[in-house]
Nucleic acid binder design. Sequence first.
DNA 1: AAAGCACCCTGTACGC
DNA 2: TGCGTACAGGGTGCTT
Length: 272
Amino acid sequence: MPELPEVETIAQGLREAVGRRIVGAEVRWARTIAAPDPTVFVQRLVGRRLLGVGRRGKWLVIRLEGGDHLLIHLGMSGRLVLEPEGVGEERYARVLLMLDDGRRVRFSDPRKFGRAVLTVDPEEVLEGLGPEPLGEAFTPERLREMLAGRRARLKPLLLNQRFLAGLGNIYTDEALWRARVHPLRRSDTLSGEEVLRLHRAIREVLAEAIDRRGTTLEDRGYVGADGRPGTFNRELAVYGRVGRPCPRCGTPIERIVVGGRGTHLCPRCQQA
DNA sequence: AAAGCACCCTGTACGC
DNA sequence: TGCGTACAGGGTGCTT
């Protein structure tokens, strides 16, 4: 699933197309377009030049000439690929943007959970998001305050985009493992030392994953905008590694369900 | 505020 | 071989 590092990787790849003009657009699955109406969506895109590509949490923010912003959330199975001219059709293509150099931006999404929004005011979509985990404002002290003001279990809290923007199931489990805290720990019970470890773990795991261009699991197919897979899966300590030894202590990794989400942990390193 | 659940989707795994 | 069913998962919305 595309989480912060995957979306960041895609944003970087998409910057390749900055300066190009959209000469055509096609919506093949109307519900992928959250707003405006798909017909209006296409009308407003065509003729616009791409001015910049950014990211906020798991949202991709594409700034367009004329003041519009194309926001894209990849959901679970979304891919955004900048493809050269002459590439064949793809079964799961939901939205296509034709560029003036012949290339196309293809938004593919087998499970149809992804969404695109065209808006002049991105804040309208993004304002509810929590802080950027890699941003300057996300300090250990800030995290301490955030955690102290809540009393939820860590795992669902870290997955909550209104609390912190960008973590998904993979990096939440990896960060908790690195910090050596249990996913069921209540947020307001962490010691100062544990908060520091968690803060550091979140930032390090995300930064390393960006360096590796994200995580591509064998059974799922995330790829960057250039079509290349990420390699952070080689660094995963717990996610999808049930029964395999903890890289730190050798204890077999366990899987529990928290808030309906599969959750991976080392029962020895991460004591409840 | 926290937590549980249904829902949106479909590929895959699994039992028969 | 093929069918039915459960499940995964990000996010939203509703209910308790």
